[in-house]
Amino acid sequence: MDKTQTESDRDLPQVRTQGLNLYYGPDRVLWSLNFDIPRGCVAAFIGPSGCGKSSYLRCLNRMNDFIPGARVEGHVLIDGADIYAPGVDVIALRRRVGMVFQKPNPFPMSIYENVAYGPRLFGVKNREALDETVRSSLEGAALWSEVKDKLNTLGTGLSGGQQQRLCIARAIATEPEVLLMDEPTSALDPLSTSRIEELIRDLKSRFTVAIVTHNMQQAARISDYTAFFLLGELVEYGPTSRIFTVPEDKRTEDYITGRFG
């Protein structure tokens, strides 16, 4: 991507969703979604379980491609380019759109190899360059100081919270533009959760973050924009401060005030 294009891209939203429908076989999972996520923001997706927020997240890096019978209509534009256009390189897309999963899922390899996995895939062989990437990624994930003396031990041997931060380090090691997080703290204790929330606030200076959470306080604490999903529809989307204080839709208000969900 050359410089002039980057300049003009500044005005574009990082992620633009246009008329997105998702089907799993005969079931329609997402209904005509339209909204933009601005660059350098944290966007939170909330809603009761089964509302389609995780399915939407997986549309953004085309992980839904693996689900038999899954079909997408409409467009998702990342930096202005439609990721569902024919001939799109899914591999390259996933390099630009990193993902952190619900359950920490480090590979059963050393901490170092976990972080170096992505860069190695893209052909980085130089040991010094790799060392540097591993260090900066672990620093970026606020894990460096805890593991710098045991980079060669198994990543699976860390505590749950550390494992999740390792997964974040692994995801940012490929220097993506967008970072997807699918309920990243749901399997963690409160202390680890608050560390990760702190981290997410730091990460938005470098990445656009899209996070699914079932925890409304979490969404209020960390996000700039909030989207409320219900039964596969986007009910309401806007600045977090507004959604949580003066929601426009009755259903959003009911959900936020805990009347259902």
Binding site: I91, A92, R94, N105, Y117, G118, L121, C167, R170, T174
Partner: peptide
């Protein structure tokens, strides 16, 4: 989940098999 993590990092199927699934 391990396969998902690998694919999400932009690995191809063969890379996922060779570098993650087989070692695990």
């Amino acid at each position: 989940e391990l396969r998902d993590a690998s694919y999400a990092l932009g690995a191809t199927r063969w890379e996922t098999i060779r570098r993650v699934v087989l070692p695990s």
